[in-house]
């Protein structure tokens, strides 16, 4: 291609008004060994661009292992999580209800009897603990000696 033409193309190139075809022509021109000396400065640019296109993605596209396994497992996780949550909820509701069922299971009398028995127990227990209050006196007196 004529030098004149190339110079014009470069001018247009820098203003970003060249077409893809014109840019290709520039790349072809700069790919050859003999380049006019005043245009030498542009050579690395175009050579680099041509070279950069050669670079390839060399890794295997690992769709088999990851794409199939990962998303499905993720979805399954969420599903089982909700199942577990529902199970837990049912469990809670069931045992939450048991307390109220107690009153249905026993008659009023039985409950009253049980309460009486328990109050008797607590009365006696309190008596016992009152006796224990005497022990405190012991402690006071022994402390007097010990602190001195």
């Amino acid at each position: 291609m004529e030098l004149d033409n190339i110079e014009k193309l470069i001018e247009k190139y820098l203003e970003a008004t060249t077409t893809v075809a014109e840019e290709k022509a520039l790349k072809v021109y700069f790919a050859q060994d003999e380049v006019a000396s005043h245009l030498e400065q542009y050579a690395p640019m175009f050579r680099y661009f041509s070279g950069a296109k050669e670079e390839q993605f060399t890794q295997q596209v690992a769709l088999d292992q990851i794409a199939n396994a990962a998303p499905r497992r993720k979805k399954a996780n969420y599903k089982w999580l909700s199942v577990a949550a529902v199970g837990l909820l049912m469990f809670g509701l069931y045992f939450g209800n048991i307390e109220t069922k107690l009153e249905e299971e026993y008659t009023q009398e039985e409950i009253a009897q049980a309460q009486q028995a328990l109050s008797l127990l607590s009365m006696n227990f309190n008596k016992g603990s009152q006796q224990l209050a005497h022990l405190k006196e012991f402690e006071k007196n022994t402390n007097k000696f010990l602190i001195k």
């Binding site: 950069a52 296109k53 670079e55 390839q56 993605f57 890794q59 596209v61 690992a62 769709l63 990851i66 794409a67 990962a70």
Partner: peptide, 27 residues
């Protein structure tokens, strides 16, 4: 896919990063 990789490499500079990014995008 090569174009994706080259764009990723242009932005991320490191080849390994770009490879990871390309895989991620393909996925």
């Amino acid at each position: 896919k090569d174009k994706l990789f080259r764009l990723a490499k242009r932005l991320l500079v490191s080849t390994e990063e770009a490879e990871d990014a390309t895989q991620e995008i393909l996925l």
